[in-house]
Design a binder for these strands. Structure first.
Lengths: 193, 193
DNA sequence: GTTGTTATTAGCACTTGGTACTAATATCAG
DNA sequence: CTGATATTAGTACCAAGTGCTAATAACAAC
């Protein structure tokens, strides 16, 4: 073959597109030093859709996964179950970049972020803001741990627009984090953090 | 005017597209019983981009946010002054990626992260871990705001290895966040979050 | 009613990033 | 050298537009 084998090029092509779906056939042709037609034949063999379809796929994924009060991309951790104004569950896999290098323990703010995101998501409103929270880091969490966080709505006050949410995070069944969050429901325009 | 006023139609048009960016001009023309050209004039006046651009926007947002979440390393915000075991000061510039798209208000966990990082940094020890914290988001923070956070060590108990730190964040002199952090001093090996 | 203004519609050329298809070459292996 | 595989070129066509000009339509004011 020419520059490399066809196989090799197609392997790289798949990778490149997976990495950056926004690339056009022409850009790919330049990068791999082949004609646009070759790229198209490759895509066909590999069953890779055209640029516009790829972009649409990415876009619609975000859209589908949208839970009423918050787009999925604003959540830390993945929501696996949600019942608005009642309870929600998310998982968050702790990786190397989340821990202190010195001792391998996860930084508190990542656990807080997961809990806070979930508290926001469980509120069935345009957008909820955290007003106050009281939290305790019960046990250290390390890289590799899978943190399962549960949010339970425990109270609601219509007058003050406040909702109380109880958060509990566990790793292998052991509680690592607990918190109580006071959330403010926004009606149109927000007021608080 | 015809079916309704132009204004009314444009208002509905904005809404419709905001709700479902995947709709084409032709579909919109059918829905509003006007010609495709009218829809295009409307979009121009309202500065709404074409379908493909809208979809690309949605897609690239997911893509960006996927990489982001909470910044990886060390300290959130820049420490500009520190006096170990006494006090510390950091600044954090709130950018677009830190706020809810919906209302432009910063997500709580970014402010928490800045405060938490500073609380860890101010402790003169190998490494400190947050055990407990009680925080209040006093005022909403928005993109463009420069948050100045001050940490003051207010108490220390040698027996329990605990240190209390008081955190206050301000924007233009106005308090936006306050918190009290209970920190655990690690001697070699850590125990807590 | 005529005039002026704003709103709406039509039509055409052109753009991007493709698909679908045919046909001509190139390259390599046996 | 021959045949299979790979690559390139070229054409017609499509969706969903932009940009532009020009013709109507609707309504308001005088």
């Amino acid at each position: 073959m020419l520059r490399r084998t066809k196989k090799e090029r197609q392997r790289l092509l798949s990778e490149t597109i997976a990495e950056n779906p926004f690339v056009t056939d022409e850009q790919l042709a330049t990068r791999f030093q082949v004609s646009v037609q070759t790229i198209r034949l490759d895509r066909m063999e590999l069953a890779i859709p055209e640029l516009r379809e790829r972009i649409k796929d990415v876009a619609s994924k975000t859209y589908e996964n949208e839970v009423k009060s918050l787009p999925i991309d604003e959540i830390i951790g993945e929501i696996i179950d949600i019942e608005l104004d009642n309870r929600a569950l998310s998982i968050f896999d702790v990786k190397e970049e989340h821990v202190f290098q010195r001792n391998g323990i996860a930084r508190g703010h990542h656990l807080f972020a997961q809990a806070n995101s979930l508290a926001v998501a469980v509120i069935d409103d345009e957008l909820a803001l955290t007003v106050h929270s009281n939290i305790t880091f019960v046990k250290p969490v390390r890289a590799g741990d899978r943190v399962i966080t549960k949010a339970i709505v425990i109270g609601r006050d219509e007058n003050s627009h406040r909702t109380k949410v109880e958060l509990t995070s566990t790793v292998n069944g052991e509680t690592v984090f607990v918190g109580e969050f006071d959330m403010y429901r926004t009606k149109g325009e927000g007021e608080q953090q």
